[in-house]
Amino acid sequence: MTPALLQSVRDAVGEVRSAAPLVQCVTNSVVVNFTANALLAIGAAPAMVDIPEESGVFAAVADAVLINLGTPNAEQRAASVEAVAAARAGGTPWVLDPVAVGVLPVRTALAHRLLDERPSIVRGNPSEILALAGAGAGGRGVDSADGVDDALEGALSLARSTGAVIAVSGAVDLLTDGERVVRIANGDPLLTRITGGGCALGAVLAAFAGAHPDRFEASVAAVAAYTVAAELAARGADGPGSFAVGFLDALASLDGATVAERIVLS
């Protein structure tokens, strides 16, 4: 880990707090509330604008956009395409979270269509990233059937072909822009036992991309902040319920110095 990257992580947390980026979320209906609360806790402003004829209008004024394919009904599919077109036209960073791609045909086709619009960041589990890269058939629904390191070559290939930063989520998170590769070994297993533990990370990635100009640095900082908050919340949790509340509290009280001190990078 270079001192410059560590400093950028420290700075990015403060930049999100001071900028309060407006993050448009076209996201899965199961996680809307938790995602909005996570964004508020980290210092961003959520907006769940996810219907056609409004999503493109809003994307044009948002600081960042999240597209999560967890429950892609017909309206959300149209809204996703509309929002991404507006984001790309305006140079607005946007994040693609390709939930359960590879296994299910409708969202898989949509994910590949959206990839052509060159997302700023793609966040997924190893099986989802491999499926997007054409190197796998997906996992078991929303659960990965592959390890993070199994997805390294696919992530590198996907980053190079799309220009996106690829964030592969797992016990140890892996991030790459096609050249640089960073692993972050923070977090806690309780994140996998609450609804929205992965999906809300996509929104936090969007918030950091909307506040910090370097997308790779923003992604590293976002994942570090999120997983450090999970560690802090787990210390006082009796189970998933108290962890979920404590996690939002930890995100709200987090500062750049704490993230930089606790981050485990390789």
Score class of each variant (00 low, 15 high):
69 L>W: 03
154 G>E: 05
41 A>F: 03
12 A>H: 12
21 P>S: 06
226 Y>E: 11
73 N>W: 12
78 A>K: 13
246 G>S: 04
255 D>S: 07
194 I>F: 09
151 A>E: 10
16 V>Y: 00
62 A>T: 05
249 D>Y: 03
68 N>L: 09
152 L>K: 09
29 S>N: 12
12 A>I: 04
167 A>C: 10
203 A>D: 03
51 I>A: 15
246 G>Y: 04
30 V>M: 07
57 V>F: 13
50 D>N: 12
2 T>F: 01
105 P>D: 13
261 E>M: 14
183 R>K: 10
67 I>K: 05
76 Q>T: 15
190 L>P: 09
167 A>K: 03
203 A>W: 08
199 C>I: 09
207 A>S: 06
89 A>L: 12
92 T>W: 04
58 F>T: 02
50 D>R: 12
263 I>A: 14
169 S>N: 13
217 E>T: 06
243 F>N: 07
60 A>V: 00
22 L>T: 11
118 R>H: 11
78 A>I: 11
65 V>T: 04
2 T>V: 00
207 A>T: 01
247 F>C: 10
236 G>A: 15
121 I>Y: 00
149 D>H: 14
230 A>F: 04
144 S>E: 05
257 A>M: 03
151 A>K: 02
92 T>A: 14
221 A>Y: 01
95 V>Y: 07
113 R>G: 13
76 Q>K: 15
3 P>D: 12
68 N>Q: 06
95 V>C: 04
55 S>K: 00
41 A>D: 14
160 R>V: 07
1 M>R: 14
55 S>R: 00
82 E>Q: 11
117 E>K: 15
162 T>P: 00
52 P>K: 10
265 L>K: 10
189 P>L: 13
140 R>W: 11
62 A>E: 00
55 S>T: 11
39 L>P: 00
183 R>A: 04
260 A>N: 06
161 S>N: 07
148 V>M: 02
190 L>K: 02
66 L>E: 06
251 L>N: 11
5 L>S: 04
208 F>K: 12
126 P>M: 07
4 A>N: 15
58 F>V: 04
133 A>M: 08
250 A>Y: 00
113 R>T: 14
182 V>Q: 03
168 V>P: 10
195 T>D: 14
94 W>A: 05
39 L>T: 01
102 G>C: 07
263 I>W: 01
21 P>Y: 08
98 P>K: 07
190 L>N: 09
42 I>G: 08
75 E>H: 14
240 P>L: 07
84 V>T: 08
121 I>T: 12
115 L>K: 02
131 A>H: 07
96 L>P: 05
158 L>F: 05
168 V>W: 05
79 A>W: 03
192 T>E: 11
11 D>S: 14
145 A>I: 13
150 D>E: 08
28 N>I: 00
119 P>F: 01
125 N>T: 08
191 L>I: 13
95 V>M: 01
146 D>W: 09
59 A>L: 01
66 L>A: 01
202 G>Q: 10
189 P>G: 10
166 I>R: 12
186 N>S: 11
92 T>I: 15
226 Y>N: 09
173 D>F: 02
190 L>Y: 15
18 S>T: 12
89 A>F: 00
231 E>I: 01
6 L>E: 06
195 T>S: 14
168 V>C: 08
58 F>P: 02
